[in-house]
């Protein structure tokens, strides 16, 4: 990447040349942020329920994005979510946010704790944490725009952000599949 060294030419000119990348160095498609900043993990048949597939995208800083894998039964073969409800358990998950730098008031949820209820026209499905940790945020967008789950489940349609302790993560990671294992397990094509 460091192809462009500061030259002795006039400053304006050199700045211009620095900013423009050489076209041949640009990849056809750059790695999306969700792929280059996170490691992808999957939990299949969560709580033993068939096709209850979820993802856990882990950032280098240890935070985990929790969401619905493309093969989750509400998305595959036909995406059919019409509503999301965070009013599960004793307290609404929306209210359960940790606050401040030190994450005061943090609720530690277990890996089998329920994050939300996803509704279709005739059924509902429970989405679980998959890792034990502090719940930092739930995606409130889903309440007003549940269809985000149908078409952008792996980005804007994420469900929650969790912060597991390193030791809890090490435990949880063993039970999760890598992207390659997930693809193989579900017999998907590579671009899934």
């Amino acid at each position: 990447m460091e192809n462009l060294e500061g030259t002795n030419a006039s400053e304006e000119e050199s700045l211009e040349s620095l900013l423009y990348p050489a076209p041949h160095e640009l990849p056809l498609r750059p790695l999306p942020a969700i792929k280059c900043n996170y490691t992808h993990h999957f939990a299949l048949n969560v709580m033993g329920k068939d096709r209850h597939d979820q993802y856990v995208y882990r950032h280098a800083n240890g935070l985990c994005i929790i969401g619905l894998a493309p093969t989750h039964v509400v998305l595959h073969p036909t995406p059919s979510v019409i509503g999301v409800d965070f009013n599960v358990g004793k307290q609404s998950r929306v209210e359960m946010k940790a606050c401040g730098k030190r994450k005061r008031n943090a609720h530690i949820l277990e890996s089998n704790s329920v994050l939300c209820k996803v509704m279709t026209s005739d059924q509902f499905f429970l989405i679980r944490c998959c890792v034990k940790g502090v719940l930092l945020e739930v995606n409130e967008q889903l309440v007003t725009s549940p269809f985000l789950l149908n078409n952008q489940a792996s980005t804007e349609g994420y469900v929650a952000i969790m912060m597991p302790k390193p030791e809890d993560w090490s435990k949880a990671e063993k039970a999760l599949l890598t992207r390659e294992q997930y693809i193989a397990e579900r017999g998907l094509s590579l671009h899934a």
Binding site: N37, H59, N61, L63, K97, C99, L136, E137
Partner: peptide, 13 residues
């Protein structure tokens, strides 16, 4: 702008 995920571990939400 919500606190970016990449700094959320050390900044408040």
């Amino acid at each position: 702008q919500k606190t970016p995920v990449r700094v959320l571990h050390r900044r408040s939400l």
